[in-house]
Computed example of a mutant assay.
Amino acid sequence: MTQSDVPIMLPLIVAQYQAVHHPREKQHWVIAALESRMHAHVFELTGGPASYAYATHVEERFGKAPHLRGGYQLGFINPRQLAWLKGRLEEVPIMRDDVERFNSQVWVISALQMLKEEGVITGDIGYRHVREELELEMQRWEVADDTLEERLFP
């Protein structure tokens, strides 16, 4: 196997965005695999409480997204696993019309639990831990310090 045959592992993160159109949610969370600061494979819950749906897309301006507020690294994923990840995350349950108990954060935590069971993630993925890490990241963003994507790809 030559070095060019060895896949480059992509950082797998939870990214947070300032939520703009949600009745209760202040931060919208997504799962993303980063190829660079600007190029990311994004897996997320879209729509509003009555129309939530799973969606995935490739973001070509990830680090420049106006509402991006950094993220928390979960581990790494082989790029060859992206199609598997896309399909696996389709299986994460979605609840509609329940703004008290369901939003993008609940969906992400459910997805992380599934990925932990699959062995993709080995670290702490509990809601409290992820929330604390993302709050620290928000503090970095507020003082114009480097956020996760900037630290990963200087």
Rank of each mutant, 00 (worst) to 15 (best):
A15I: 05
D5F: 00
V130A: 10
N103M: 02
H57R: 15
V130G: 01
R88Q: 05
L10R: 02
V120E: 02
H57F: 15
E150R: 12
T147E: 12
F43S: 13
A40H: 10
E25D: 03
L68V: 12
L134N: 03
F76N: 13
A33P: 01
A53G: 14
V20E: 07
W107Q: 01
L148K: 14
E100Y: 07
R61H: 15
H41V: 07
F62V: 13
L148T: 01
A40M: 11
P11V: 10
P66C: 06
P154T: 12
T46W: 05
A19H: 05
K26M: 15
Q139Y: 07
E35C: 15
I77C: 02
M38D: 15
V92G: 03
M38S: 14
F153S: 10
M138A: 10
L45Y: 04
A40G: 07
R80E: 10
A32I: 08
Q73M: 12
E118F: 06
S4E: 11
E60I: 04
R96G: 01
I125E: 04
R80P: 00
L82N: 05
K26Y: 12
Y72S: 06
L34G: 08
L68D: 07
I94A: 00
A144K: 14
V6S: 04
L148S: 09
Y127P: 07
L134Q: 04
N78E: 13
I121T: 07
K116V: 04
M9A: 10
D146P: 02
A15K: 03
E150F: 13
P93H: 01
W29Y: 05
W141K: 05
N78Q: 11
H21T: 03
N103I: 09
D5S: 13
V42K: 07
T122P: 09
E91W: 00
H67K: 14
M1F: 02
R101C: 08
Q105M: 07
V42G: 11
Y127F: 15
V92Q: 09
F62W: 04
S104F: 11
V20F: 02
A55C: 09
T2E: 11
V120K: 05
R69K: 09
Q81K: 03
Q3M: 10
L89K: 02
L45T: 10
E59N: 14
Q3W: 04
H39V: 15
R37M: 08
M38W: 08
A83L: 06
Q139I: 10
R24M: 05
K86I: 06
